[in-house]
């Protein structure tokens, strides 16, 4: 499906009012992992608002990326409770396994490694999200195994 088709399908589902903007943006990110210029221009046209307005909203939200991301986006919680429970070791293990630094995407475009503010699992940290799935009570080894599982399942 092209980006245009995807946007049209989402607009069909959520409507053309300004209130539809978030679900449409979220729907594109769900599929594409980021909002390309083409996607944002198409959305602006479909909702009859300015492209600047679409970009303004998109660029406000951490989960609405406007730069290309890998097929799987990893977000490791970095807030205090997870910090105290060893998030640095988790990030180190993932950086070593993926051979990238936080903020980067692997060459094969399968993974982007990011950090996030409190994910709401302070009693079971460290924790990470891979796309929408949550993985609490991580150890460095467990984190790497989870990523390997995604590697195997990503075409």
């Amino acid at each position: 499906m092209t980006v245009k088709e995807l946007v049209n399908e989402l607009v069909e589902k959520h409507g053309t009012t300004h209130n539809s903007l978030m679900p449409v943006l979220q729907g594109v990110v769900q599929q594409e992992r980021y909002l390309s210029e083409e996607a944002m221009l198409t959305i602006a046209e479909a909702l009859d608002i300015s492209a600047a307005e679409v970009y303004g909203t998109a660029s406000f939200y951490t989960f609405l990326d406007t730069v290309p991301r890998g097929k799987n986006v990893i977000r490791v919680c970095k807030t205090i409770s997870c910090h105290m429970q060893g998030k640095d070791e988790i990030i180190q293990a993932l950086e070593d396994a993926l051979k990238i630094k936080v903020g980067e995407t692997t060459d094969n475009k399968r993974f982007t490694l990011l950090t996030a503010n409190c994910l709401g699992w302070c009693h079971k940290g460290p924790v990470m999200l891979v796309n929408d799935e949550v993985y609490p009570e991580l150890t460095p080894q467990k984190a790497v195994e989870i990523i390997q599982e995604y590697e195997r399942n990503t075409k």
């Binding site: 807030t79 205090i80 409770s81 503010n117 409190c118 709401g120 699992w121 302070c122 009693h123």
Partner: peptide, 11 residues
């Protein structure tokens, strides 16, 4: 929109 660091009761 529970986001306060240290809060997870709403989840």
């Amino acid at each position: 929109d529970e986001g306060e660091p240290g809060t997870f009761k709403d989840r």
